[in-house]
Amino acid sequence: MDEPPQTRVVLRCDAHPTFGVGHLIRSLALAEELQARGVAVSLVGDLGGITWVEQLVRDRGIPVLPAQEDPAQVAEQVTALAAVAVVLDGYHLPSETGAALRTAGLVVLAMVDAEFGAGQEADLYVDQNLRATPRADLPPGAAALAGLDYALFRDTVLTRRRVEPVPAHDPPRLLAVFGGTDPYAAAATVVPLVLATEVPVQVTVIAAREEVRTTLAGLSPGAGQSLEVLDPVSDLAALAAESDVAVSASGSSVWELLCLGVPTGVVCVVDNQRQGYTATVGEGVVAPVGVLDELRTDDAARAAAVAELRSVLTDGDRRADLAALGQRLVDGQGRTRVADALLARLPR
């Protein structure tokens, strides 16, 4: 007897040095959950020639096809794969893509960040950000999932989620990471502020760009300070789990760090991160380091950032409070809830 065809879901997302890898990473988290339930996953998109990202996808056995530009052609691609659903994740995707896929009979899940990406027509909208609210103008029959209860994390994060406080290192270890490609070279601005605290600290920084590595190579750590510069890594959670503090762009990496239980300082690197930055700072769940443009041009902003970083590095009780609050907000079960909602909409 022939086996019934396997349910297949397609990810339509991209990664690129100019806009980063966050969309792909959270889509892969959902893919891991779907694969664990016996669902086949394919990816239609461009991985931007980023070697470690390509390896991540290969390791999960996910076939990759280059995407057509026209939404109707994308619908034809997906239909040819015998898929039943598509996950759209990317602000740059043509706004007609979701409608074309739905017209072809496919279930569409759109990942959005407030208004960014929300122009797609979809059956299910997911906004995994703190204080996100379900949009009111849904297409007929559509539903929205909003808030940190729906944050998506890969296995590598979930298996390293701290279940009890980790003894502090002396001096503390700080991980600085600004997305998988640091497209705005934030590390070159923020790491000098960490060293300017004059606090003993072991700094590990992910440097994805040559100009960033050049700037960091010219820094002189002070007494009791050390600086290690690494290329991007596929298992960032492993580094984060061994750190006492992290400093991150205010994107999806923040939710990973909170889930892990790592006290985190955040930098608003680009406009689409502003809502997340404001929400996390307002909730008191992160240390506010500042807005990147201001840190580059404003002496007062830099001084405030140095004071904030010094506080987090020297105040163990504050770090413990940040870690506990973050884990209370982010329980790590978001991908289970999103997968449940998506699979419930598939044809029986």
Rank of each mutant, 00 (worst) to 15 (best):
V163I: 04
V163N: 14
E164D: 13
E164S: 15
E164P: 01
E164G: 13
P165L: 12
P165K: 12
P165I: 04
P165R: 12
V166G: 03
P167V: 14
P167R: 14
P167C: 11
A168F: 05
A168S: 13
A168D: 14
H169R: 15
D170F: 12
P171T: 07
P172G: 02
P172I: 02
P172K: 10
L174C: 06
L174K: 11
L175M: 07
L175A: 01
L175Y: 07
A176C: 13
A176F: 02
A176M: 09
V177M: 15
F178A: 05
G179W: 05
G179L: 06
G179V: 09
T181M: 03
D182G: 06
D182W: 07
P183Y: 03
P183Q: 07
Y184H: 15
Y184M: 06
Y184P: 00
A185R: 13
A186W: 08
A186I: 04
A187R: 00
A188S: 14
A188H: 00
T189K: 11
T189G: 08
T189I: 06
V190F: 01
V190Y: 04
V190A: 02
P192G: 03
P192Y: 02
L193P: 11
T197W: 03
V199A: 11
V199K: 05
P200D: 04
P200M: 07
V201K: 13
Q202M: 07
V203M: 06
V205M: 09
A208N: 09
E210K: 15
E210C: 03
E210G: 04
E211N: 11
E211S: 15
R213S: 14
T214E: 15
T215I: 05
T215G: 06
A217L: 04
A217Q: 12
G218S: 06
G218I: 01
S220P: 01
S220E: 12
P221T: 06
P221N: 09
P221E: 06
P221S: 10
G222C: 14
G222Y: 10
G222N: 10
G222D: 04
G222P: 08
A223F: 07
A223M: 10
G224S: 09
G224I: 06
S226A: 15
S226R: 15
L227V: 08
L227N: 08
E228S: 15
E228A: 14
V229A: 01
L230Y: 00
D231H: 15
P232K: 00
S234V: 02
D235A: 07
A238H: 13
A238Y: 10
L239I: 05
L239S: 11
A240E: 08
A240L: 03
A240V: 00
A240W: 05
A240F: 03
A241H: 13
E242K: 14
E242L: 07
S243Y: 07
S243I: 01
D244N: 08
D244Q: 06
V245R: 13
V245Y: 09
A246C: 10
A246E: 08
A246D: 07
A246I: 01
V247Y: 02
S248Q: 06
S248D: 01
S248Y: 04
A249T: 02
A249L: 05
V254Q: 10
V254A: 10
L258F: 14
